[in-house]
Design a protein around this nucleic acid. Structure first.
Lengths: 166, 166
DNA sequence: TCACAATTGAGAAGTAATCTCAGTGTTAGA
DNA sequence: TCTAACACTGAGATTACTTCTCAATTGTGA
């Protein structure tokens, strides 16, 4: 737990820059308190890095960034915290073709949908209010209560006049 | 999947199980031939079982069914063939929360969407023409050519007492 | 038929995620 | 202050799924 490079590490609570952090921290702390869990420095650091990122991330990337910030957190703790953050409704999994899961901030955001390029595998984010509406209608028809969704469109990119090979 | 020669064939009439096999075999064989690959007994057996199933399946289940049919195919070959069938556009991956991938027949079918129960993890299949329409519109606006999509709604089932707050 | 490249099975190897467990805070109460 | 209780952590073992390796086999075109 004690860090080699940046001993200041996580003991201090200086919330710099990101204003988005305050509410998310509050949500997380409330969730933890409700479930008799503790808001530890490690958990704070992890949420911190996720918020700064504000983008899709993999666990491995997250670990790397934690290291770069001088935070020392084990892989096990990262996985454990990610699970908590999911349960708290702060982040969500975004599965793509690849093996490992991606995660992203979701709390207070529109659901994010993806246009996935069949050529390169890259994905473009978008949101669609119509989709949310459709989703809600589909649920309502069946008496279900919508919580979230996952939508990915697989497509060929523009300007593709069938170039099979060079 | 690179060939776009017969997109019309999806407008097929209602087919018996057995009859459904013929066109799919043909598609697979054509794909294999095009790529200088061989139509082996193992590959035929695997496709056979997948067609009979006509449902979501995991690799482990597929292996089991192969055994039950008396087909002896190794796990490695099953994985390899699944990859080929995906490339041939015959089956597709359906990712859920769990670790392992699910697969399903896709060739000549409507995209299948899922309502996933947040309580039990079970999923209910549905199709939505409106969703397909929306998907196509989203692509068109961006100049992309839609190939497929993946849509999962996460929801609480009917008759659920109001979930605990926070 | 023959030659050759693709294919196969069995098990090793790889990878992402989870689990185990001993040791570490942190808090409450005596 | 001391102590007990209990959640938390790191490191490494473990599990579950998937891919890879390689020697032996098989299908296909000439």
């Amino acid at each position: 737990m004690t860090s080699a490079t940046e001993p200041e590490s996580s003991a201090s609570p200086p919330l710099h820059e990101n204003l988005a952090m305050a509410p998310l921290c509050a949500v997380f702390r409330r969730y933890l308190k409700t479930n008799d869990l503790k808001y530890t420095p490690e958990r704070a650091d992890i949420l911190n890095v996720i918020i700064e990122r504000d983008d899709l991330f993999e666990v491995e990337e997250l670990l790397l960034e934690l290291r770069q910030h001088g935070y020392r957190v084990s892989k096990a703790t990262v996985y454990r915290t990610i699970k908590l953050l999911q349960d708290a409704g702060i982040i969500t999994q975004a599965l793509f073709e690849n093996k490992q899961a991606h995660y992203q901030l979701i709390y207070g955001k529109e659901a994010r949908d993806y246009l996935v390029c069949m050529k390169t595998g890259q994905h473009q984010e978008f949101t669609s209010p119509e989709l949310v509406e459709l989703r809600n209608r589909i649920c309502k028809e069946r008496g279900w209560e919508p919580i979230g969704h996952r939508f990915q469109i697989y497509a060929h990119p523009p300007h593709t006049p069938t170039p099979p090979h060079d």
